[in-house]
Design a binder for these strands. Structure first.
Lengths: 298, 298
DNA sequence: TAAACTCAATAGAGCGCATCTATCGAATTG
DNA sequence: CAATTCGATAGATGCGCTCTATTGAGTTTA
């Protein structure tokens, strides 16, 4: 035996409203025989007569009234679904959960916020900060939709694209011996004290990689928890550090007590990219977002 | 393009619950390809991706979550409809609106109540009292389901059946000249003063009809509003009246000051019957009710 | 590294059933 | 009595849901 059909409920409600099979059929865009037959089947399926068919007088039985009441609720909710889907059908709209590295977020966002709001006005970004491994985990689990971090990353089921290449710069206390240099070679850093972030930050690994071979020594018993504390430590003369270019700009870079200098060629850089699940349903908005960021970052 | 189908919503909810196409298909008693194809069509119809299909990992998009939420409500209500219909599907159960003539109701019901409760235990009777013309109107409009009154009646769209024939009896003050008679002929009532109900009561017309030809005169400026006031008037010696047999029995008939006597043959009677809309959905319970009444009344 | 396994998507066939047009039949109206 | 209204019935048609069989991508095991 067939089961309940939304269409049949529509027919029933139409009859309840019009008290007339012909007009109900018209309202539901089917022929009158179709509507009659379907309603008969509905009654048969439910095992109850819903409509009293008298000549020149159509009315509902008690059972019919109660069924119609539910049917209205159902049809309302089903229309809601369609409406709701319409709202979601703009691929460039809706809420997107975006995570950034702590060494990127505060410095990248001010650069792209205005352009993003203009180019993707219906996009509502939910922002998070995670270190690489946590971010990849949350990406995979669906907790976030996009991650922005340093490439390369390798994780099954994830796709990525490059956004921009970010040069590293040297941050030193003002008055430092290298302050006069326009650009700095790795070798110039020989014997300097290097300040770094705590474990887990990829920036720490990147800096160590760059400095490997040069004769730097990392400051013992110190691991900064953020670029900001790192900058303050540099300003206080404890040592030097490497900063990604975006973090060395603007208010951060012009802070008193710290001097920022570029590297001489070959400039060490890191590659920043966007990562998302291969299976994501938001590929189009993610690509649009990536395009805006790569066009605005540097 | 097709429209929303309940079955598809079932598929979607099953996937939301199991996060697995195969098990969802099992739960909804279709093959996995069927479920896959239908869900794809649902997404196509709504214009939104609802499910994220990753290898070894099925999850819902934000749109999917919202749709599922509504879908659950819809399916719940649709199950409610089926349940509700099941409750209504016992043709001998439910609420039946029954109207009786004022000259029948108080006297008939005590006779049949016990038997009715026993034979039709799931029947809930809503009782009303109306005079014939009002009753027919309310029957026609659907305000009541069955009427019990004196036949014949003629109204379009109504059906009727005979329940029982009710003899009339003579009610006279105790000490009346006819009190000694075991039975009474119409002609015996010559010169008596006849007390009757007010206009609108069919009993009034029936009594007048019976007495036409005999030399009775109706008490001027008096029209009783109920059989009860009529009986009290008889007891106070103002005149005599005709009572239907049921009203002459029991507590009513044995009341002090009133003597009830049967007619001699040919005994005048009225025919009591049940009336209902031809189009009623409750024919079976009405017939059952009629059967019980006609078996218990006299 | 190949083989077995998992799981959703695709292909193609079958047919149930919703839908149509045409017509009937009952009831009402002029 | 003819005309009209209105729901039910009859029979034909075709869409689309459903199935089985298979593919193919990805994962796990030997």
């Amino acid at each position: 035996m067939a089961d309940l059909k939304l269409k049949d409920l529509r027919y029933l409600v139409a009859v309840a409203d019009t008290r007339h099979f012909g007009r109900a059929a018209e309202r539901t865009f089917v022929s009158q025989p179709t509507l009659s037959a379907q309603l008969k089947k509905l009654e048969e399926y439910l095992g109850v007569q819903l409509i009293e068919r008298a000549p020149k007088r159509v009315s509902l039985t008690a059972a019919g009234e109660e069924v119609v009441e539910r049917a209205r609720r159902i049809l309302e909710a089903s229309d809601e679904i369609v409406e709701l889907a319409k709202g979601h059908s703009d691929p460039l709209a809706g809420r997107l959960k975006l995570a950034l590295l702590p060494t990127i977020g505060p410095y990248l966002l001010p650069h792209v916020a205005v352009k993003l709001r203009k180019q993707l006005p219906r996009l509502e970004l939910m922002l998070y900060e995670y270190q690489t491994d946590v971010m990849l985990e949350k990406l995979h689990s669906g907790e976030i939709d996009v991650g922005i971090l340093a490439l390369p990353v390798s994780m099954d089921g994830l796709d990525s694209c490059e956004l921009y290449k970010e040069p590293f710069m040297v941050a030193m206390p003002s008055g430092h011996r290298l302050e006069k240099r326009a650009s700095i070679k790795i070798e110039d850093l020989n014997d300097e004290t290097l300040l770094l972030l705590e474990d887990g930050h990829c920036l720490r690994d990147q800096a160590l990689e760059i400095c490997s071979g040069a004769g730097l020594h990392e400051k013992q018993d110190f691991r900064a928890t953020s670029l900001e504390t790192l900058r303050q430590m540099v300003a206080s003369g404890v040592g030097i550090t490497l900063l990604p270019e975006l973090a060395g700009r603007g208010a951060y870079g012009n802070a008193r007590g710290v001097v920022i200098r570029p590297f001489a060629k070959p400039v060490p850089t890191r590659t920043i990219g966007a990562v998302w699940r291969k299976s994501t349903a938001r590929r189009s908005v993610i690509m649009a977002l990536a395009k805006q960021i790569s066009g605005s970052a540097l």
